[in-house]
Design a protein around this nucleic acid. Structure first.
Lengths: 346, 346
DNA sequence: ATGAAAGCGCTAACAG
DNA sequence: CTGTTAGCGCTTTCAT
């Protein structure tokens, strides 16, 4: 079993210099088409595999984009990553994916590891990070994009939305439907920053409507689960028997809450209305379908990819931080008595 | 804005040679603890970030393990990847994750790209690949592990189970419960190889029990969705009105089927029994809870990580291909009239 | 425990 | 369109 062939072996086999082989393996390079074919054939015959490792060092470009998300197993983040990945792949950029498990220290560790691999851009979920993480990102000398949030004090660029503001149209919708005693399930864990933001948004919106915002039940630490949603619904029913409607931090807990109602013979939406967040498939197919908020996960990924590609192409002129607000959309479904129309928040 | 510091800058600041800095940045290296502290302090002061890119080239080790899965947004694969990632991280191995979108040509492309990055091991989902992919993997000079399947003709190592054989205990269970007219939803798309295997397993098991295995309905191309499960249930009810029980290729389609029954006022399991595959959270929390098959997704990831770590440590002696069968477990729940006990298939 | 020399495999920069 | 030279930033190897 011989040693793996290198570029110089291909060059010799094809009767050219290594430089020409190098050019032949890139798209933009100016190599005679006939020569190129001969080189690729020689490479194939030898079983040559291009060594990105050496290329990266010499060219000072890795083609990596580091991405951290809280959880791998979350349809929303998966959609964002998929769109991001697709958009980046068209420009030969490859995602280096890490999940933080909703832990800012884990994120710090991941970012530290990723930076050593010299990514060309960095994407982080959320706007809350440890000081050390902020420092590392600020010094990273590559574009940083915070997604799925609208941080007060962004590190670099932003593609996201306000998790707090997103709740207002939903509270308004429930109010318009006649609901007054509206509860909230989820988001009292420090780690679940987006959950906390939604909870805060609920409190603000309720207060603004002159309603009592204190019917709050935790749904356990992230990741948000259906089971915890069901348990929280139990607690809510015991603690606030007069409850008329409940907003859940996620469609997963919302569905869990719905099942708890089913088990108890409580009719949704006749007895209690339920709404979620995220427009997961379960929300659409549940019986009854759940009112929810579409955060446009794919579009966040798509726009982030576009932004990164653009930033890398114009890297000579370090542009201003960009701030892209992808406003979520309220989807009214039967679980809150609606008739299925879509409201774009004002 | 000065150039990013290199190892030699840290060496000068700490009054040592670059070689000592290099050693200080690795765990096993023999560097005086005082010196090490001085070096790390100097590195910190300079804002030095270790360059893995150069390290990779010189040491001919990247720390990458390439992993391809069909879909990012699938709780089973996510669980496997999480366990795999955790197990590998303890040995400074980092996953390079790609998703094939259930497309063997996409897989081929991904593997080709990944090989250029010189991964130290490769993990692929399933045992069906293009010839070109098989060739690339066979020539990769690193361990290859096929997971989530038990291929007839493995490329290298295997950690998985027979998707076909997994169906037998479920068919037997339904038979024992008295069901005879049992249908199957899912898996007639070429791309969905595991779905096809389960369908084949259903046909085999039904035939073995002397039952009619022809009540089959497709549930569309992967990824498997709840919506398609509901649609397939409609078709099944129209086509085979005498149906008593239905096995679905996944818990997602099983839940979709359940919702279709709910919409039609069909009682599960009184009128029709429903079973799924994968032990997704939805199966446990649905009303009624769904009988399913736990494929032990996390354990597959864990065992794969352990195998890779072991193979890399003993790389001097190229061992025999290893073949690890992680037998799935049948979980009987209310949706098939069971009372909740667990059967380990004989 | 530390250092000096050499080079991993490719490509930037320049030349023609 | 193609070639030559040098070197990316680390670590292997050998020495002390």
């Amino acid at each position: 079993m011989a040693k793996a062939p290198r570029m110089i072996d291909v060059a010799q086999a094809a009767g050219v210099s290594p430089m020409t082989v190098s050019r032949a393996f890139r798209r933009d390079a100016s190599v005679n088409e006939t020569t190129r074919q001969r080189i690729l054939a020689a490479a194939d015959a030898l079983g040559y595999v291009f060594d990105t490792t050496a290329s990266n060092l010499r060219s000072q470009r890795t083609g990596f984009v580091a991405v951290t998300i809280p959880s791998l197993n979350n349809a929303n983040f998966a959609d964002t990553v998929r769109a991001l990945s697709t958009g980046l792949a068209q420009h030969d950029l490859q995602i280096l994916l890490g999940y933080t498990n909703y832990d800012m220290l884990e994120e710090e560790h991941l970012i530290g590891q990723f930076l050593r691999r010299r990514p060309e851009a960095i994407v982080v979920s959320g706007g809350k990070h440890t000081d050390q993480t902020r420092r590392m990102l600020a010094n990273a000398r590559v574009p940083v994009v915070e997604i799925w949030d609208l941080p007060d004090n962004p590190i670099g660029h932003v593609v996201g939305f306000s998790n707090a503001a997103a709740m207002a149209p939903l509270v308004a919708h429930l109010f318009n439907q006649g609901y007054r005693r509206i509860g909230f399930i989820g988001g009292d864990e420090d780690r679940d920053t987006r959950g906390l933001d939604r909870r805060r948004g609920y409190v603000n919106a309720m207060t603004a409507q002159g309603l009592d915002p204190r019917r709050l039940v935790a749904s356990g630490p992230p990741p948000i689960s259906m089971r915890e949603g069901a348990r929280a619904m139990s607690t809510l029913l015991a603690r606030y028997p007069d409850i008329q409607a409940v907003i859940c931090v996620s469609d997963l807990s919302a569905f869990g809450a719905l099942t708890e109602c089913q088990r108890r013979g409580i009719s949704v939406p006749n007895d209690i209305a339920i709404a979620g967040f995220g427009d997961y498939e379960i929300a659409d197919i549940a019986v009854p379908p759940l009112t929810t908020i579409d955060a446009h996960a794919s579009e966040i990924g798509q726009q982030t990819a576009a932004m990164i590609v653009d930033l890398l192409q114009n890297k000579a002129s370090p542009s201003e931080p960009r701030f892209l607000d992808i406003t979520p959309t309220l989807l009214v479904r039967e679980s809150t008595s609606g008739s299925g129309q879509v409201f774009e928040p004002g």
